[in-house]
Simulated scan of single mutants.
Amino acid sequence: MDPLHAASLACLGAATLCWLLGVLTREYSWVDRLWSILPPAYVAWFASHSHAGAPRLTVMTILAALWGARLTYNFARKGGYAPGGEDYRWVELRRRLPPPLFAVFALVFIAFFQNILLLLLAVPAYVAASPTAAPWGSLDTLATIVFLLLLAGETIADQQQWRFQNAKRARGDAYGPKFLTRGLFRYSRHPNFFCEVSMWWAFYAFSVASGAGLVNPAIVGPVLLTLLFHGSTTFTEQLSRAKYPTYADYQRTTSRLIPWFPRR
Score class of each variant (00 low, 15 high):
D2S: 13
P3L: 09
H5C: 08
A6R: 08
S8R: 05
S8K: 00
L9E: 05
A10M: 11
C11I: 05
G13V: 02
C18T: 08
G22Y: 05
L24P: 04
R26Q: 15
E27F: 13
E27R: 14
Y28C: 10
Y28S: 11
S29C: 11
V31C: 08
D32H: 07
D32N: 09
D32M: 08
R33M: 10
W35D: 03
S36M: 10
P39W: 03
P40Y: 02
P40S: 04
A44L: 08
W45S: 11
F46W: 02
A47C: 12
S48V: 11
H51E: 15
A52S: 14
G53H: 13
G53N: 12
P55V: 12
L63M: 09
W67G: 01
A69C: 13
L71P: 03
L71I: 08
N74G: 05
A76F: 07
R77H: 13
G79D: 10
G79N: 09
Y81H: 12
P83W: 09
E86L: 11
R89P: 06
R89W: 11
L93E: 11
R94Q: 13
R96M: 13
L97P: 05
L97H: 08
P98T: 12
P99M: 11
P99W: 10
P99K: 08
F102C: 07
A106M: 02
I110R: 00
F113K: 03
F113N: 03
F113Y: 12
Q114P: 00
Q114V: 05
Q114A: 05
I116Y: 08
L117S: 04
A125W: 00
A125Y: 02
A125Q: 02
A128N: 04
A129T: 06
S130G: 11
P131E: 08
T132A: 14
A133N: 04
A133C: 07
G137T: 11
A143H: 00
L149K: 01
A152F: 09
A152N: 07
A157M: 01
D158P: 01
R163M: 07
F164H: 06
F164N: 04
G172A: 09
Y175P: 00
G176K: 06
K178R: 13
L180Q: 01
T181I: 12
R182D: 10
G183L: 03
L184H: 06
L184Y: 02
R186N: 06
H190K: 09
N192I: 06
N192M: 05
C195S: 09
S198N: 00
W201M: 05
W201E: 01
W201D: 02
A202V: 02
A209T: 02
G211L: 02
G211K: 02
A212K: 01
A212R: 01
G213Y: 00
G213P: 03
L214I: 13
I219W: 05
V220K: 01
P222F: 02
L225I: 06
F229G: 04
H230G: 14
G231Q: 10
S232T: 15
E237R: 07
L239H: 14
L239A: 15
L239G: 14
S240E: 14
K243I: 13
A248L: 15
Y250R: 08
T253G: 15
T253S: 15
T254D: 09
I258Y: 12
P259E: 13
W260P: 06
F261S: 12
R263T: 14
